[in-house]
Design a protein around this nucleic acid. Structure first.
Lengths: 132, 132
DNA sequence: CTAACTGCAAAGGTTTTGCTTCTGG
DNA sequence: CCAGAAGCAAAACCTTTGCAGTTAG
């Protein structure tokens, strides 16, 4: 994990905007958010900084359904749920699976280091839409 | 889920090659495999058919770490483990989490439909490499 | 001061799409 | 037959990179 980085205006605003939302935005969505504050920032800078900030542990890069990567201001361990209809991603609060390795009898010789759990379902908005 | 499809030579070979391996290949890797049997097949056809075959439930499209999607001939529910060093993906055999919803006290109003669990670790090959 | 960072534009890798020709049922 | 599929090439989409000028510490 990288140790020190320069705190530039661009990085400040990226962190600030990301911490304002709970929506786990993509790089492009972050670009649009940050652009309102720093109109001259480039998408390249967004990508470079999201990479660096997650290397530093200041944000978390998520690899979740879909092509685009998403980013999260919360770096603690937690799980996500994704709406199968509209694609939005929310946090779920609950116990993290501890003794997860015990559940498997054949790990193919792997040493397990971490895990990721993604729930899928229908979000409240899309549920009410389908009632109409 | 789509109901009927024409069984063309191309689809036959894609299914056949995919069922031969346990490596969860990417579209591009499948292209290389199939090309040995059908040298004139195009990458576009591979993509179109992987999409269609997974809509039909004949194969499974995996959304797993990294940019490229991977595909799996096994459509039953099972989990995967990915090597953090070399990126290969293997199946793990074990119980599927049943009462998973009970573990969460706040689901944000979602109706949970499915879940996906991905383990991460170091595969046997990469473990022995690091000993040298 | 200067190593690190930015903006810009171009390139890279993956996936999708339009169109014409071909073919399975 | 002919709806649907294939091949080909171009476009679309997301991300990374090279370079010259700028800036935080």
């Amino acid at each position: 994990m990288k140790q020190i980085i320069r705190m530039t205006k661009q990085r400040e605003v990226i962190l600030e905007e990301l911490s304002k939302v709970t929506s786990h935005p993509t790089a492009d969505e972050i670009y649009e958010m940050v652009r309102k504050k720093l109109p001259r920032i480039s998408l390249g800078t967004i990508y470079r900084n999201l990479e660096i900030l997650s290397e530093c542990g200041l944000i978390r890069k998520m690899e979740i359904g879909g092509i685009q990567k998403r980013f999260d201001a919360t770096t603690e361990n937690h799980y996500h749920i994704r709406c199968m209809v509209c694609g939005r991603v929310d946090d779920v609060n609950g116990k993290v699976l501890d003794n997860i390795v015990d559940r498997f009898d054949d790990l193919n010789g792997y040493k397990v280091v971490d895990h990721r759990l993604e729930l899928m379902g229908i979000c409240p908005l899309c549920r009410s839409d389908s009632h109409s």
